[in-house]
Simulated assay, not measured.
Amino acid sequence: MNRAEAMMNEEALGWVIRTRDPEFADWEAFTAWLEADPVHAPAYDALMAADADLAEIVPTEPVTMAAPANDAGERGWRWSRSLIGGGAVAAALVAAISVGMWNRSDIYTVTTRPGETRTVALDEGTRVELNGGTTMRFDRHDARFAALDSGEAAFTVRHDAANPFRVTVGDALFEDAGTVFNIVRAGNATRIGVSEGEVIYNPKAEAIALPAGRALMEDENGLRVMDVATDAVASWRQGRLTYANAPVTQISADIARSLGVRLTATPGAGTMRFTGTIRLHRDPARFFGQAAPLMGLSAVRQGDGWLLREGDGPPR
């Protein structure tokens, strides 16, 4: 599947999602799209048929927005895992399209070891900086598309309205609008922070706009949109990690990725939260000697790794 086919399938998928909505009324625009190219109708029909085959996973009730999260660090709204207008089906269809696209011979993978960083220049004005423990895929023939499989990457993107830069992360798609942003993929959880411009989350489904100073988290608890300090986005590039009420479990993963150390936390320490800035240092003993007490914790060597636990004390 080439780039043009992928984009056409994405447009067709957007129309499948919209026309399934009982309140859809823009039939004139839909007809114009069908008539614009003879391949549009077959593509729409194929995706609609696939959509029907997956109908049992479509939510029967619309998404509702609950009250703001009680957590002071999540200043925003919470969505349920069910997606708007057949979005669960949309994710399945996008995944099917992506499989064909990413299996092409011109796709290449870049991987960094924990503690290692690497910069990939894609086109003039667009670069991706990979933090440690990261795996990404790129297209030799399309500098405007990438996939983050795991780890963390910072994106500095040259804006092109006619050909926006897109990043797939799991079943999600992020589209830039002239942007500097950072994405973390850990297990099935994804978080993104935007420091310049704007990013659109799933432009053909939820279409959540994330301007500078906004962040999004998607995990087993759903979607959460919140504020973020712009200078905290991709702060690992400046040798620091900045947080606002972040759980120690998340901080531990960030430290391990950035420094290349094996790090775990006791259950009690993992549930604690921290607000502040942690300076990175390549010497683990020196780093934990400063960072652990800052978080109200102590650090203990465990074989070739470290353990964070409750209590303020020097590392040992």
Rank of each mutant, 00 (worst) to 15 (best):
residue 226 M to V: 00
residue 41 A to D: 07
residue 131 N to F: 02
residue 25 A to P: 01
residue 81 R to A: 13
residue 22 P to S: 08
residue 246 A to C: 02
residue 65 M to H: 11
residue 200 I to T: 09
residue 93 L to W: 00
residue 190 T to Y: 09
residue 44 Y to C: 08
residue 216 L to Y: 03
residue 281 H to K: 03
residue 179 T to N: 06
residue 15 W to I: 07
residue 284 P to S: 10
residue 90 A to G: 14
residue 227 D to E: 12
residue 212 A to T: 03
residue 7 M to P: 05
residue 70 N to K: 15
residue 253 A to Q: 09
residue 261 V to S: 04
residue 118 R to H: 12
residue 153 A to S: 04
residue 210 L to W: 11
residue 258 S to P: 05
residue 127 R to K: 14
residue 31 T to S: 11
residue 149 D to Q: 11
residue 172 A to L: 14
residue 47 L to W: 01
residue 221 N to R: 15
residue 256 A to F: 07
residue 198 E to T: 08
residue 315 P to F: 01
residue 203 P to I: 04
residue 3 R to M: 11
residue 234 A to H: 11
residue 154 A to M: 13
residue 25 A to Y: 02
residue 276 G to T: 11
residue 131 N to M: 01
residue 122 L to T: 03
residue 64 T to K: 13
residue 108 Y to C: 08
residue 99 V to K: 05
residue 188 N to G: 09
residue 271 T to N: 08
residue 263 L to C: 13
residue 200 I to Y: 06
residue 314 P to C: 13
residue 189 A to G: 14
residue 115 G to V: 00
residue 265 A to K: 01
residue 152 E to Q: 15
residue 137 R to W: 05
residue 244 A to K: 06
residue 181 F to T: 00
residue 19 T to C: 13
residue 152 E to W: 11
residue 172 A to D: 15
residue 17 I to Q: 06
residue 102 W to T: 13
residue 7 M to I: 14
residue 223 L to G: 02
residue 67 A to V: 10
residue 35 E to C: 08
residue 106 D to S: 12
residue 292 A to Y: 11
residue 291 A to S: 09
residue 67 A to R: 13
residue 266 T to A: 05
residue 285 A to I: 03
residue 94 V to C: 12
residue 28 E to W: 00
residue 147 A to F: 06
residue 114 P to M: 04
residue 256 A to S: 13
residue 261 V to N: 05
residue 107 I to S: 10
residue 45 D to P: 07
residue 90 A to P: 07
residue 199 V to E: 00
residue 226 M to W: 02
residue 267 P to Y: 01
residue 234 A to E: 09
residue 70 N to D: 14
residue 256 A to C: 10
residue 17 I to T: 08
residue 11 E to K: 15
residue 251 I to A: 10
residue 45 D to Q: 14
residue 211 P to L: 04
residue 147 A to Y: 07
residue 298 S to T: 12
residue 281 H to W: 04
residue 33 W to E: 03
residue 34 L to P: 05
residue 80 S to N: 10
residue 9 N to T: 11
residue 105 S to A: 14
residue 6 A to C: 12
residue 216 L to F: 02
residue 23 E to W: 12
residue 314 P to T: 07
residue 69 A to G: 14
residue 142 D to L: 00
residue 49 A to N: 00
residue 72 A to I: 06
residue 285 A to L: 05
residue 21 D to C: 15
residue 208 I to L: 04
residue 149 D to N: 08
residue 76 G to E: 06
residue 120 V to G: 07
residue 262 R to G: 02
residue 196 E to T: 13
residue 58 V to D: 06
residue 13 L to I: 10
residue 244 A to F: 08
residue 198 E to K: 11
residue 223 L to T: 07
residue 261 V to M: 05
residue 20 R to M: 06
residue 198 E to A: 15
residue 83 L to W: 02
residue 145 F to Q: 15
residue 55 A to S: 10
residue 44 Y to M: 07
residue 298 S to Y: 09
residue 69 A to H: 14
residue 302 Q to C: 11
